[in-house]
């Protein structure tokens, strides 16, 4: 789990973040100019999953904790939002905080148990909690059960149907993603992030230096769960539909792939990885219905050849351009 890391001081993630954000900010403009309206909706969906992948990278990349149930938080955020909308309380200022609270609480309770374990046991416990959320959603017969639930519309803003506008919703998603990315970048450079990263290297050492590693990890886990819950809120609004599939373990697996493709622990890499993963999926599935036969080997080859995913490639290219200016 030791991918290249941005925290070594000499590698700045400033330009990749700027390029990513600028690129995403310009998508609607380009889409309108080229009359490719569906790009806006497609990219919105991609950014929502990128946000979920980003939140996973906090605990997986920086914390070194492989959570295999991360989609549960998306599901919780989505169902909270969906149910509130169905009950006529879907205003942004109710649904959004409620989604965060519910996913955060779930992270807190499951984290207290799961974070006492390590390695394979941690993976299995998070998977089990994830499956619990999945089956709970399936059992919600009043809200569609197995079939999922088609919503009456999107969240309103003080009663206004502002979010139903594709462009408005695009930029809402964009600001959520960019905001979370910047927040996590800052946090990872602060003492909190360094302690989390140091605990990944050597938790016992961090304990003997005076840190309650369990508590630091729990804070990171809750924060990560809440960010995935935010992605769930956005996803329910975007698709105007919620389904148990949002919380399925396959989705958790997708998120792990996105983080690995991007470069574990680099944060912006997780965003890049998610976009790459989903673009590939989109492109390949347009070619043939057996696209997964191509997709799987392609992902494996990519991970094997790049050593550290997108972030690793970008870093090596920059090192080349720098011409060995640092030793």
């Amino acid at each position: 789990m030791s991918g290249p890391l941005i925290l070594s001081g000499k590698r700045s993630s400033f330009w990749p973040v700027v390029v990513l954000c600028l690129g995403l900010a310009l998508v609607p403009l380009v889409a309108v100019l080229t009359k490719q309206g569906h790009w806006v909706s497609l990219t919105t969906q991609m950014m929502i999953l990128a946000l979920a992948a980003l939140s996973l990278d906090l605990i997986l990349g920086i914390g070194g904790l492989l959570s295999f149930g991360h989609a549960a938080f998306i599901g919780l955020g989505a169902y909270t939002t969906g149910i509130l909308i169905q009950e006529g309380k879907g205003d942004l200022f109710i649904a959004l905080p409620m989604s965060l609270v519910v996913s955060g609480l779930f992270a807190f309770v499951t984290g207290i148990i799961a974070l006492r374990t390590r390695g394979v046991v941690f993976i299995m416990i998070t998977l089990a909690f994830g499956q619990m959320a999945f089956f709970a959603a399936q059992a919600l017969y009043a809200y569609g059960g197995d079939d999922g639930l088609t919503l009456d519309g999107r969240s309103t803003l003080f009663g206004l149907k502002l979010l139903s506008n594709k462009i408005v919703f695009y930029y809402l998603t964009f600001f959520c993603l960019a905001g979370c990315l910047l927040l996590l970048q800052r946090l990872s450079r602060a003492r909190f992030g360094r302690v989390l990263l140091g605990s990944r290297d050597n938790a016992v050492r961090m304990e003997t230096l005076g840190y309650d590693v369990f508590r630091v990890r729990l804070v990171a886990y809750v924060l990560s769960g809440m960010m995935a819950g935010l992605a769930g809120f956005l996803l329910a609004n975007h698709t105007e539909f919620v389904s148990p599939a949002y919380a399925a373990w396959q989705r958790s697996g997708d998120l792990i792939f996105m983080v690995i493709i991007g470069g574990v622990g680099s944060l912006w890499g997780a965003v890049g990885g998610a976009l790459t993963y989903l673009l590939l999926e989109e492109g390949l599935s347009g070619l043939t219905e057996h696209w997964k036969v191509i997709f799987g080997p392609l992902i494996i080859a990519f991970v094997l050849l790049t050593h550290g995913g997108i972030e690793g490639v970008v870093t090596r290219v920059r090192d080349l351009l720098d011409g060995g200016r640092h030793d």
């Binding site: 890391l5 925290l7 003492r191 140091g198 290297d201 840190y211």
Partner: peptide, 23 residues
């Protein structure tokens, strides 16, 4: 304060981060 056998510095943190993280 313990200086452990085998040193055990944090490999992925920079020197300064190793120090500041534990300040």
């Amino acid at each position: 304060g313990l200086v452990p056998e085998g040193r055990q510095v944090f490999p992925t943190l920079s020197v300064e981060e190793n120090l500041v993280a534990t300040a």
